[in-house]
Design a protein around this nucleic acid. Structure first.
Lengths: 188, 188
DNA sequence: CGCAATCTACCTACTTAATGGTAGGCAATC
DNA sequence: GATTGCCTACCATTAAGTAGGTAGATTGCG
């Protein structure tokens, strides 16, 4: 992965998260990176190739963060709170979730990208389910609720909060929603 | 509001909710409605005019639904559950929230539309805050938490669940998240 | 080692199709 | 007779993508 390629990925991610997948063009990206439009095609032949690389890099970064949280934070609610804080940066920088930006395209999103973002969410769902199950086992998370349902609920809340609080440019409101979410997971 | 105008609004809403604001064109809409592209400009001179009309119609429909819920459902959790069910149709039809589709465009969304969708969310937030405050007063909603924060949390969860469960085409999972959300609002 | 062959990363210049939007005409209606 | 609602025929711009070339680095091999 060359310097230019990494720079393309970085700037493209910012563009997609800032204005949506259909809302950015190779011309925008070329201007942001400082090379010619045609040169982007050397690194990413089609826009779908670029999109897939973007999701792969994004997912890899998240995967590393999830592992770090599991290693560093011992209890269930603390882990979910740390997970939620990963979204906070987006609110602060005015950038949405990459996969949410792609998901909005729905029916016209190329099949390959749909598969990739579905896998992204499925990975997070699986991680959260494990974390919540462990929390229920060690008593840090309230029992009763099914960990799989709880996992979907956690991601939904955070994705929605990022979507809305980015619009309002309210990191504080995001923190508030995260607090309500995490408190609701504790026993009682 | 003529027949054609209403038809344009209906089809345009389906297109925007299905593929995003940047992802649909006047050509798509013309094909869907069965008139020529130029004729759309007679009803909606610019795409921003169309977008604003879309948000206005969408917001009006929701406003009526919110009033109906307040009139028909007596308790706080029941009202939030009914509110959540308004989103369910989107999951079932594979259509996201109109305002979420617009919100994704972020920085490049015309200022007028940004204001309109911010008002949409602000209206829902205000309605929910009233509903939750009343619920705390009559004991149907757990006390302690600030109604304004709770309102933001409710919308975030539902918007996020719609976004994700549309991708997975899982109305059942949406219902599961709604159940977790509503249960968490009850006393205890 | 020396050097031709190849590869990498970029370029200019272009194509094709689609975009939002305009100009102006025409028939029906108020 | 003006307005409404639609039309055909455009326009300028931008989209993604292609063709083909060039300078410089890397490699294979006699």
């Amino acid at each position: 992965m060359r310097d230019t390629r990494a720079e393309l990925l970085m700037q493209a991610e910012t563009l997609v998260r800032g204005r949506g997948y259909a809302g950015f063009s190779y011309a925008d990206l070329a201007a942001a990176v400082g090379i010619r439009k045609a040169s982007i095609h050397h690194h990413f032949p089609t826009k779908v190739d670029l999109g897939a690389a973007l999701v792969a890099a994004y997912a890899a970064r998240y995967a590393a963060a999830l592992e770090a949280i599991r290693a560093d934070v011992p209890d269930g609610p603390g882990r979910v709170a740390a997970y939620g804080r990963l979204y906070l940066g987006g609110v602060e920088q005015g950038l949405g979730c990459l996969c949410a930006a792609l998901a909005i395209e729905g029916e016209v999103l190329p099949e390959r990208l749909r598969r990739d973002i579905a896998a992204f969410f499925a990975d997070h769902l699986a991680w959260l389910e494990t974390i919540l199950r462990a929390g229920q086992a060690d008593g840090s998370v309230r029992g009763g609720a099914d960990p799989a349902s709880l996992a979907r609920y956690v991601i939904a809340t955070l994705e929605g909060a990022l979507l809305m609080e980015r619009l309002f440019a309210s990191p504080d409101a995001f923190r508030g929603t995260l607090a309500v979410l995490v408190d609701g997971l504790r026993p009682q």
